[in-house]
Structures are given as structure tokens and as C-alpha cells.
């Protein structure tokens, strides 16, 4: 029954603030597949992902989720989403458990939290190694810990598709390892994953396919860049990708200077940055 792709986006055209941002993006993610969405800053990765979850309307193109056209899609519990963001905190204190429980709303909706929901929250918290901090305020956590909380929030509904926008950005080494382990378990469970990344880093072994965006169009869709190389770095790093792809190379100059996580202090994993 679930042989339809988890995500099937065709010819996506979208604009933000009147400015065209996506110019015909095609993106397919099969059930159980792990796809990395790469590209320079501003190439439209977040916009693509936000189109898929319906936050950015399509001007042209089609979107199907699990074989259902977006307009008729109701099975939101099948999707777990980690937005790209700065913090999990907001104007009023909220505990780690409260933030993660919000992800469970995809299961219980307007009804109260049930026992199996509480158990799922505990499981998700222990998967990201934050169960002991469940009662703490999210504002008291480090950036990496907050990111773990947001990932637990996405996982807690036990989705068939996880969509994560730069889950590793600004995350300390310890949290990166926890996240990589968590993701591995989710993949083993059979979940499909769409990951927006700057560099493959510790997630590299999990990735089946890479889609590279450049200026709102797909510049590459195929095997991930060769081992040990993030995209886009030096020309040598692109050796495994088609050479005759000029669009692919244009984004190159922006990186790594424009990288969001370039200026992270010492806590960064040593091998991940230039």
C-alpha cells in the first residue's frame, strides 16, 4: 500500500516576499530512503522543505505526500519536522517535556494527552539522551541540547518521514554524535529522511542520495559527494559529481565563508570544518 513516494515534488515554483526563490524544483524521496538536500546559503533548501510541509505555497508545480495530493493530505502523524531555527525557547518558560509533547499532537489532536502519548514522549527523550533534563526549561539548555529537544519533538509522533532542516548547525560534538545515533535508529526503523545539510559530516554513512540546489534549481541529483568531502568545498571535493554541471559550481564560492556554522567556537567537531 505504501509504495508511493513519501515526497513527490514536481516543478515547484515558489516566491518569498515577491522574489522568486524556487524555479522548478523536482524532489522525490522514497519510503525508507535517506536524502540529503545540499547547496550554498540562499540556494532555496529551507524554502524547498517549507514547500513540502505546506508552509510556503506553491505558485506552480505539484506536491504529493505518500501518494496523496497535498490539498487532500491529512495523515500528518506520518511526518516529523525539525525547522531551521535559532532556539526552542519562546516568551514564556517551557519545559523540555512540554516542547517534546507538542510533537505528539499529531496523534492526539484536540483530545487530551493519553498514556501511550506520555510513554512515547519518554522514549523520544531517552533516544536523544535528554530524559534526565525533562523537567528543565528549554531556555536553560545549550544550542545542541535544544536541537536534540526539537528532534525528539519531531520523532515523538513515530513518523514515516522525518524532515530536518540543518539539524547539525551550531551543535556541539557530543550532541552531533547523539543525533547521528538517533537518526540511525530512525532509519533502521524504516523511516524515510530528508535532511538539509551544509556538510555530510557524521551522517554521511546514512545517506542514500544527495540533491544539490543552486539558485532555486536542482543542480545535481544522485549519489552523495565522495567520502570525507562535504558539499561544496574545493573543486577536488566535487570529483564524484558531473563536471559538466556549471550551476553546481556557481554556489561553490559562497562556501565555507558563508556557512552558518563556520564561526562556531571550539566545541565543533574537529573534522567537520575547513
Amino acid at each position: 500500500m505504501t509504495t508511493a513516494p513519501a515526497i513527490s515534488l514536481h516543478g515547484a515554483v515558489a516566491a518569498l516576499g515577491g522574489r522568486p526563490v524556487l524555479r522548478g524544483v523536482d524532489l522525490t524521496v522514497q519510503p525508507g530512503e535517506v536524502v540529503a538536500l545540499l547547496g550554498a546559503n540562499g540556494s532555496g533548501k529551507s524554502t524547498t522543505v517549507r514547500t513540502v510541509v505546506g508552509s510556503v505555497p506553491l505558485q506552480r508545480g505539484t506536491l504529493e505526500l505518500f501518494g496523496t495530493p497535498y490539498a487532500r493530505f491529512r495523515h500528518w502523524h506520518r511526518i516529523g519536522y525539525v525547522p531551521q531555527r535559532t532556539t526552542a525557547a519562546s516568551g514564556v518558560p517551557a519545559s523540555v517535556r512540554e516542547v517534546v509533547s507538542a510533537g505528539r499532537l499529531s496523534r492526539h489532536g484536540l483530545l487530551p494527552l493519553r498514556r501511550r502519548d506520555r510513554e512515547a514522549v519518554d522514549r523520544a527523550l531517552s533516544a536523544v539522551d535528554m530524559l534526565d533534563r525533562a523537567g528543565d526549561g528549554v531556555a536553560d539548555l545549550s544550542g545542541g541540547q535544544q536541537q536534540r529537544v526539537l528532534i525528539a519533538r519531531a520523532m515523538v509522533g513515530e513518523p514515516d518521514l522525518l524532515i530536518m532542516d540543518e539539524p547539525m548547525a551550531g551543535v556541539d560534538l557530543a550532541s552531533q554524535q547523539v543525533l547521528a545515533g538517533t537518526l540511525q535508529q530512525e532509519v533502521a526503523r524504516g523511516a524515510a529522511v530528508l535532511l538539509v545539510l551544509h556538510e555530510l559530516g557524521p551522517l554521511e554513512p546514512l545517506i542514500d542520495r544527495a540533491v544539490v540546489l543552486s539558485d532555486g534549481s536542482v543542480a545535481h541529483d544522485g549519489p552523495p559527494p565522495p567520502s570525507g568531502r562535504g558539499y561544496p568545498r574545493q573543486s577536488a571535493g566535487l570529483a564524484g559529481l558531473p563536471d559538466d554541471d556549471p550551476a553546481l559550481l556557481t554556489g561553490q564560492g559562497c562556501h565555507p565563508q558563508a556557512s552558518d556554522d563556520h564561526h562556531r567556537p571550539r566545541t565543533t567537531a574537529p573534522g567537520l570544518l575547513p
Binding site: 508552509s55 491529512r74 495523515h75 500528518w76 502523524h77 511526518i79 507538542a102 499529531s106 484536540l110 509522533g157
Partner: peptide, 19 residues
């Protein structure tokens, strides 16, 4: 819980399927 989710992170709340 529902209003918390909506006020905390509206985009995320929408992806949980909440009205």
C-alpha cells in the same frame, strides 16, 4: 497543549495537523 504548540511554534503546529 494545543494553544501552547500554536503560540510556541506556529509552523511546527501546522505540520502536526492541528487546525
Amino acid at each position: 497543549r494545543q494553544l501552547f504548540a500554536v503560540c510556541q511554534d506556529e509552523e511546527f503546529a501546522r505540520v502536526t495537523g492541528l487546525p
